[in-house]
């Protein structure tokens, strides 16, 4: 009962903030001087990245929590955060080139932030694939927790190395450091969109966790009925 009311509250809040955020981003925030309306993709692009970072950080937290206490719910949470984080990372990676083409004149550049996001995306795709390629649930939980921890420990080192590598191999791009002088209205629109995305992320993660609980339950039931089936075939008693 309680989880249902939390869900309903989250959905109501997410709907309100999403509509408000989109209104603020598309109509209320001022038009950017040089980039024009293209710049408005920034209100989707940046919050998507931030949300995916939060989700990937939670994968790390729940992985440690799983190894410490071995509770299945922590494993399901880690898995859900990885999948939902990947969705937001994909939104970020997809909206980036749409913005970069008219503004920078190129689809993609091996800039530190872009490259970092791509490497993160690849890392968590591998994490999700690992989960799909394992059957035994306990082993899957332990192994993916190890990968979730090692992967996240690596993030600062990857970022440092990519940044340094960039400074050694300059590329023809005008630095897009637009965060510096952000208009207060733009900042508010950005924050509103981020809150909406975080709420959406929370809803999706909760749904995903419930789905894996259902899958577990179904597996247990199937194993149970198969067991009964076998015992019936061999003349065993048939009761639930």
């Amino acid at each position: 009962m309680r989880t249902q009311s939390i869900d309903r509250l989250l959905i109501i809040l997410a709907t309100i903030t999403l509509i408000a955020g989109l209104y603020l981003a598309l109509f209320w925030a001022p038009r950017e001087n040089t980039m024009g309306d293209v710049q408005r993709i920034f209100y989707i692009h940046v919050p998507a990245a931030w949300t995916s970072f939060v989700a990937f950080f939670l994968v790390f937290v729940y992985s440690i929590a799983y190894l410490a206490r071995r509770r299945r719910s922590r494993d399901a949470l880690a898995a859900a955060c990885a999948e939902v984080g990947l969705v937001f990372a994909t939104i970020n990676l997809a909206t980036g080139p749409i913005w970069a083409r008219p503004v920078w004149g190129i689809w993609w550049t091996w800039d530190a932030r872009l490259t970092m996001m791509l490497v993160l995306w690849l890392m968590y795709v591998a994490y999700v694939m690992l989960r799909h390629y394992m059957i035994d649930p306990e082993r899957r939980a332990t192994f993916s927790a190890v990968v979730g921890i090692i992967g996240f420990l690596n993030v600062p080192i990857v970022y440092m190395s990519i940044r340094w590598w960039r400074t050694q191999h300059p590329q023809p791009v005008i630095a897009g450091g637009s965060d510096s002088g952000l208009d207060p209205k733009m900042r508010l629109a950005l924050l509103a969109c981020w809150v909406a995305f975080i709420l959406l992320c929370a809803i999706l993660v909760r749904r995903r966790v419930r789905l894996s609980a259902l899958i577990d339950e179904l597996d247990a039931l199937q194993a149970h009925t198969e067991g009964n089936h076998i015992s019936a075939e061999f003349g065993g008693t048939e009761h639930s």
């Binding site: 490497v119 690849l122 890392m123 795709v125 591998a126 994490y127 694939m129 690992l130 990968v147 090692i150 992967g151 690596n154 080192i157 990857v158 440092m160 190395s161 990519i162």
Partner: peptide
């Protein structure tokens, strides 16, 4: 390779 290569980028 899918697991290892992204982590060994540095």
């Amino acid at each position: 390779p899918l697991l290892l290569l992204p982590v060994t980028v540095p």
